[in-house]
Amino acid sequence: MHFGSKLATITANTPTSVTVTSPSGTGTVGVTVTTPGGTSNPVPFFYIGAPFKSGLSQASGPLAGGNTISISGSGLSTATAVHFGAATATPTVVSDSQLTVTVPAGAAAGAVGVSVTTTGGTNNGLSYAYVDVPTVGTPVPASGPTSGGTAVTIPGTGLTTTQSVTFDGTPAPFSVISDTSISAVTPPGAAGAVDVTVTTDGGSATAAGAFTYVAGSGI
């Protein structure tokens, strides 16, 4: 039996079927079977190359998984599995250049390799970071005027991927100082103690009643 011009290794043979190990190749080749009675007409066989991945729509997410991301690249139409470290998920093929997949839960916070398996093989090269749910402490200072504008430092853990900071549900401008500290400026608010919520790629954490708005000057 030949795949194009290359001879295949026959592993089983019956009057109605032949089992072979295909030789290496690329593209489309004709498969022919030769017997004492002659050579058959060629039947097309398609060699599929290993996939190529060019990017992830989201490079980090919660340790619990469950978020859906897109993988772009080429040669993805026959994808059967996406591996996040040791965890495996079944993708949905959108096109030869795009997959969507629900990220499985991770074993621990940190980066893992992402690989895609197709009929043509497996390709690595991308990384995805699992992020722990953050923790949030009491802002310093812990009070300020109802007019807002108080610069505060918010302590916590897992703050590097912070997406938003709110005081009683109102977004506040912020900047990440480190994984354990955020700088924020309070928005205007009603007098009284309010919750401070920080949302990261790993989820949200709330410090209940952690900041107090004081009527008047706040002194």
Rank of each mutant, 00 (worst) to 15 (best):
G85E: 10
A184L: 02
G110P: 02
T162K: 11
L99C: 05
A8I: 12
P139L: 03
T197D: 04
P187V: 06
V82G: 06
P173I: 09
A87F: 01
A129H: 03
T135R: 10
P187H: 08
A12D: 15
T28C: 00
T35W: 00
P23V: 04
S164N: 12
T32Y: 00
G4M: 02
S22T: 15
A205S: 12
I182Y: 05
N123R: 12
T11A: 14
A8T: 15
G189E: 03
A81M: 09
F174E: 02
L76K: 03
V101F: 04
P42K: 07
N41Q: 13
T161G: 08
T26L: 06
S175M: 11
T118P: 09
T90M: 02
A89C: 10
H2N: 15
T80C: 01
G189H: 03
A111L: 06
T122F: 10
T161M: 10
V31R: 05
D195W: 05
K53M: 15
T199V: 15
V20Y: 11
V140D: 09
F174M: 09
Y47H: 01
Y47T: 00
T80W: 07
T88W: 00
T34M: 06
T212F: 02
A190T: 15
T200G: 03
P15T: 13
A12V: 06
G216V: 00
T197C: 10
G125C: 14
V112M: 12
A193C: 09
Q163H: 04
G144F: 04
S77C: 03
D201Q: 15
I182S: 01
A81R: 11
P171F: 12
A87D: 05
